[in-house]
Design a protein around this nucleic acid. Structure first.
Lengths: 196, 196
DNA sequence: GTCTATAGTCGGATAGAC
DNA sequence: GTCTATCCGACTATAGAC
């Protein structure tokens, strides 16, 4: 992966470097200089390819949003029961302490303040929520889930559990609370054969 | 509330100003100068009362943690069934788009990197989780919840839904996804009389 | 206790040479 | 396309007067 970075052109390297820094430090905490250094590019080079910090960040955010959307679809579009697909989505391998590259940006006041920067974040998280709701709806139609459940609400709860799980994990410095939250949600969601 | 700020001494005003800015902008995004201006205090004044940015932030974080712990206990320590208390906790009045003053800090790389700064965050979120687990345990003992549920896991899921609900709400610029997630979780948690 | 002055570094961006 | 030089303001902190 690093060797891949080495063979990229400057514009690509800048975007990839910006993605990493935005994920780790957010927009406010990411300086053009830091991006340039991480990308091995000079100042002039960056300002040749991008209009400024915001422009580069926008390119980086859009790419991360694309990737997140594709990865989600890859899991939720797979086979199996509705519960199995949601379970697969929740248990999917994740770098928990790094958190979600999109969710992280929602805590950044500058991202929220600039509609252009916020748009890709809103769009992709909305799309994931919508895709989850579809799966839940399938589970309702097949009788897998109780009719009392609202697909949009369950979808929001599933995604919120993930995003909040990252928060709790980072607070403790370990992934345990994330795993706990996911298991708790899955237990609540599990189609039960009979009450004890 | 503003008039209350006016009557506070400088040290108090600095702490309150820091609390607000940390909540809104995080540690990385909060400068001593901005705190001084918000507090109506000069530079020398701030460095007289506090050793520096980190020291002031620590005081502010500790106070916010205390308040959060007390507010949580006030709701979860109230009367009613376990479900009713968890419902009250989830539906408690919140400034959703502002999010959680502690959860927000977990996204800050400097807070996570400095154990002193992270400690109060970890402590209070752990305490809330523990308190929620106690309530769930009471619900299990009274037969309110299914025995299949694990109190720690449900507690983590409840708190994660809140924290993640803030993320989703901020992404859209409105509180709807938060409310959706909360309703979804409550529906999953609801003691059901009978399956349909 | 609070103020002003000062310092050194970084942030974000522009200009112009090569 | 990439580089160096330069700008101006902000950040974090220290020094010392009042």
């Amino acid at each position: 992966m690093y060797s891949a970075v080495m063979t990229m052109n400057t514009s690509e390297r800048l975007i990839e470097a910006a993605r990493g820094l935005l994920w780790e430090r957010g927009y406010v905490g990411t300086s053009p200089k830091a991006v340039q250094q991480a990308a091995g590019a000079g100042q002039g080079s960056m300002y040749h390819h991008f209009a400024g910090k915001q422009d580069l960040a926008l390119a980086a955010i859009r790419r991360s949003a694309e990737e997140l959307g594709a990865a989600t679809e890859a899991v939720l579009g797979g086979g199996g029961s509705a519960y199995a697909r949601i379970e697969a989505y929740l248990l999917r391998e994740r770098d928990v302490l790094r958190g979600c590259p999109m969710g992280r940006l929602t805590m950044d006041p500058e991202v929220i303040a600039h509609p252009e920067l916020r748009a890709p974040v809103e769009e992709v998280l909305g799309r994931v929520r919508g895709r989850l709701a579809e799966v839940v709806r399938e589970g309702l139609d097949s009788g897998e889930f109780s009719n009392a459940l609202d697909p949009d609400e369950i979808a929001a709860a599933v995604l919120a559990t993930l995003q909040g799980g990252y928060v709790l994990a980072r607070a403790t410095g370990g992934r345990a609370p994330f795993d706990s939250a996911v298991r708790g949600l899955l237990a609540l969601l599990a189609p039960r054969a009979a009450a004890p």
